[in-house]
């Protein structure tokens, strides 16, 4: 058991080490979400005059951007598999006497950790956006970010195991990530959209992620009725969906990773 944990740790350690060492990537990873929050947030706010909304626009916008950046961070971290394949290091891992299951899990947890680090940094801007929180709610937010990051990391592994070249990532991000992001409810509430869009969003894990984050992030700033106005699912439904999704996608991604050669 100890040896298995050690292998899990070493794969995880490398992922995190590379993320922290690449300081440029580290800063750009929080720079873009902050830009969106500041410029988009301020700009879009002018469309809706205060009396129309029952809440501050930043409060609506922040959980969505948080969810999206964490998800994209988790997925793009798993692209390290494709880099490793291109530069040969993947072979070094694959020929070692380690079970593929632990390599895949280590990679998933490594990507989840990078997403958690990024999420925590973004959370530090909450006081400036007029979002209240205390320690228990902060811990709840971190736990939800973990759930989201893990699921997206596993999804990333699922795709990355099949990608042969790093250029394919742009295709992946256009065909899979972009639609998921637009249908997540981060930019507009999914309450009153046409039914075809609502049906699609119904199967979108990111829609549940954003809703879950709205419930936990805003719990100290708004009351339940106000949060209900901007979400489609209740918190327990979101958590249940995310948990189920995580279990299924872990199974699938490990299976895909085992086929890798």
């Amino acid at each position: 058991m100890n040896k298995k944990l050690q292998t899990l740790y070493v794969i995880w350690y490398r992922e995190v080490l590379i993320y922290l060492r690449n300081s440029l990537k580290f800063f750009t990873s929080i720079f873009l979400p902050l830009l969106i929050l500041i410029f988009f947030g301020t700009g879009l706010k002018t469309i809706f005059p205060a009396p129309v909304l029952h809440y501050d626009f930043a409060q609506f916008f922040f959980p969505g951007i948080l969810g999206l950046s964490v998800s994209i961070m988790a997925i793009s971290s798993t692209m390290s598999i494709v880099w490793d394949r291109e530069f040969g290091f993947l072979k070094e891992i694959l020929v070692s006497p380690i079970s593929r299951l632990y390599i895949a899990l280590g990679k998933i947890l490594g990507a989840t950790t990078t997403a958690l680090l990024q999420g925590t940094l973004i959370l530090l801007t909450m006081p400036y956006l007029g979002i209240n929180f205390d320690i228990p709610s902060f811990i709840k937010i971190i736990l939800v970010i973990f759930l989201i990051g893990y699921g997206m990391a596993a999804l990333g592994i699922f795709f990355a195991s099949r990608l042969k070249r790093i250029e394919s990532f742009s295709i992946l991000s256009q065909i899979i990530i972009a639609p998921m992001a637009f249908l997540s409810g981060a930019f507009f509430p999914l309450k009153n959209v046409p039914s075809w869009m609502a049906t699609m969003a119904h199967y979108n894990p990111l829609a549940y992620s954003v809703d879950a984050l709205r419930w936990v992030v805003l719990s100290k700033s708004l009351n339940n009725e106000e949060i209900l106005l901007m979400t489609t699912h209740s918190l327990p439904v979101c958590l249940l969906f995310l948990l189920t999704f995580n279990i299924i996608i872990t199974f699938l991604s490990v299976r895909m990773f085992k086929k890798l050669n």
């Binding site: 292998t7 740790y9 530069f87 006497p97």
Partner: peptide
């Protein structure tokens, strides 16, 4: 122990870290 035709080192890491990872992978 294996040395392939093409390099399989991790370029982002130091020489020492590359050895460390390998040692951990092989228990």
């Amino acid at each position: 122990g294996l040395v392939f035709q093409e390099t399989t080192l991790d370029n982002h890491l130091t020489a020492e870290e590359n050895l460390y990872l390998h040692a951990m992978l092989y228990g």
